[in-house]
């Protein structure tokens, strides 16, 4: 067994410096690497380019990094839940690249899988396709999109083992699997880290080969963005 477990979060985050490009898993606040984000806030590393579907909310998730002006550029598909984000974007402090959601995840997966680029129909005829190569296949037009290049990927899983194998829960899976192995170093944080041999190999979502470092997060707030319920009748 090749052991990916690191002693603590400092070791997990070692090597993250100013002006790096980071991938961060999650959809809204669901499945975000909370402990990695908290550590980035603490260290004050800045000039970051963040690839993440959303930008958190004003006081949680990537919103915490935005608040401290640590992010130079965001690459996301939807950023509508964050007032500070909007303010920084409209004032020009923050550079933003909006990418269709399916293209965003596939640009991660392409980096993971060794594809330099791929064609997608998403965004053809819109401003997303401006300046990009387009091509017709079977009478339909497609846009050439390129794989991301990132220094670190921070992902969050439900359970993991010391070999780096990961299991996700519910819709907290989202962007996390495609980001594993899509950057030079992938750091996985999990709610429960178990010894190798504990997890059933049939149930593994992401094999440890894609992960360089794994640790158990100290605490998970798992904040709910839109609490919608019905009354028990």
């Amino acid at each position: 067994m090749i052991n990916k477990k690191v002693a603590n979060i400092n070791e997990a985050m070692h090597g993250v410096t100013d002006n790096m490009t980071l991938m961060l898993g999650g959809f809204g606040l669901c499945g975000i690497p909370e402990n990695a984000i908290a550590h980035l806030v603490k260290t004050g590393v800045k000039g970051l380019t963040c690839i993440s579907n959303n930008a958190g909310v004003d006081d949680f998730g990537l919103g915490l990094l935005l608040h401290k002006h640590q992010i130079k550029k965001m690459i996301s598909s939807y950023v509508g839940e964050n007032d500070e984000f909007e303010r920084q974007m409209l004032s020009g402090e923050l550079d933003v690249e909006l990418v269709p959601q399916g293209t965003l995840v596939e640009r991660c997966r392409a980096a993971q899988s060794g594809f330099p680029a791929f064609y997608t129909p998403a965004g053809f005829g819109t401003e997303v396709a401006e300046g990009k190569e387009t091509r017709e296949f079977n009478g339909k037009m497609y846009v050439l999109e390129k794989a991301f290049e990132a220094d670190f990927a921070f992902v969050k899983a439900w359970k993991g083992d010391e070999a780096g194998n990961l299991i996700f829960k519910g819709t907290a899976r989202n962007f996390n699997p495609a980001m594993c192995g899509a950057a030079k170093i992938t750091v996985a944080e999990v709610e429960e880290l178990v010894p190798a041999g504990t997890l059933d190999p049939n149930q593994i979502h992401i094999p440890g080969i894609f992960i360089q470092r794994i640790f158990q997060g100290e605490v998970y707030e798992k904040r709910i963005e839109q609490r919608t319920v019905r009354k028990k009748s």
Partner: peptide, 21 residues
């Protein structure tokens, strides 16, 4: 399915509108 009953909501199970489901 529908929204969860009060008290049954799970932060790990949401829809694209970030609502608990």
């Amino acid at each position: 399915g529908p929204f969860p009953f009060e008290g049954d909501e799970d932060a790990d199970i949401i829809n694209a509108g970030k609502q608990t489901i």
